[in-house]
Design a protein around this nucleic acid. Sequence first.
DNA 1: TAACGGTTTAACCAAACGGTTAACAAAGGT
DNA 2: ACCTTTGTTAACCGTTTGGTTAAACCGTTA
Lengths: 203, 203
Amino acid sequence: MKKEKTENTENKILDAAKNIFEVKGMNGARMQEIADAAGINKAMLHYYYRSKQLLFEAVFKNAFSLLAPQLNAILNNDDSIEEKIRSFTHNYISFIAKHPYIPNFVIQELNRNPKFIEKIQQADAFPSLDKFNAQVEKEVEDGILKPIDGKQLFVHIVSLNIFPFVAKPLIKGFLKLDDKDFQELLEQRKIDVAEFIINSIKK
Amino acid sequence: MKKEKTENTENKILDAAKNIFEVKGMNGARMQEIADAAGINKAMLHYYYRSKQLLFEAVFKNAFSLLAPQLNAILNNDDSIEEKIRSFTHNYISFIAKHPYIPNFVIQELNRNPKFIEKIQQADAFPSLDKFNAQVEKEVEDGILKPIDGKQLFVHIVSLNIFPFVAKPLIKGFLKLDDKDFQELLEQRKIDVAEFIINSIKK
DNA sequence: TAACGGTTTAACCAAACGGTTAACAAAGGT
DNA sequence: ACCTTTGTTAACCGTTTGGTTAAACCGTTA
């Protein structure tokens, strides 16, 4: 039937485009390459998405919308800061292991065109730090945490969790690790990173 | 005189290429753009560097050779771990503020072509972690530090220091900061990051 | 001053690129 | 049966790309 065909082709395109764009970026990706990966004619890309730019934006928004809920989870639930750090660290590293190209893709493309973040900021699920900041402030007052700024703590958390994925070749090089060693390092970090953070901030 | 002219042109090319490549990457940069920025004819690029690839590699090695000594400083001097963390954090953030495009450039291009790191590993000044690891082990034994793996500590340190530069647009977006706010956040991190790490690992 | 070498330029080239077109096929409605 | 809409293809198009070429430029030297 028509409808099924349509959805199939559209999804095949988006899926192929995702794989190519996430690895090669906007500048490195070729429309012909995406068409080949999707097993269709190049003209179909334009039929469904009009231009490379629009196809790319569709892929980018998809990738970003996978990332955002992970952050929202830590920012807006009712756990204590300590629990949030533990669960986020564990979940995030597991999540990225399933989507290894997303962090680098998002960061690379946001650096290429920083205005993208403004477009996305207006979207529904864009994470807000307000609750997290207030919660840190309260736990500091209550004597649960040592004095610390919520924003800096947030940057600490995302840095420790995301950077190893973004800088994988660099870290593999410095530490002289093969792929297996690196995987084990990440596995160990699911525990170590949370301990490391909590160790530092808890009274 | 001939020699001076040569050096001038060669340097003008390398300088222009650096500015363009570091911002746009290998795929985003255009030879014509580099020639324009250098104020010379496009053919000169090929006269001096033969191909885009070779010009790019010259730029990349230059950038990497600025980064490496920063790491060697922390890894191979005779300070205590605590002193190393303090000086590295302070110096590194200052250093990158002067060369803001380098971390992202190096990481982006290493992800595009992970084999680059192998070429560079054979170079003279490539940092080695051996001394740092041994030192961490010793300070743990001596009861100065809580038990921690040197490799993980190293990843913690570089993550906390480098990631904010790489993910600048992302962090600006999440924290709703303008450029001035972000600059202040980085300035504050020169102190906060070292405190944060030491807080966690010192007995 | 004429010949030489390294340097620089304008013009050119083939390939690759994103995008368009026109014709055709398949499906649905009437 | 016929027309309309939607989906698909091959061939094509203009532009941009990295790279080349042949000739000119210019200080040096014999």
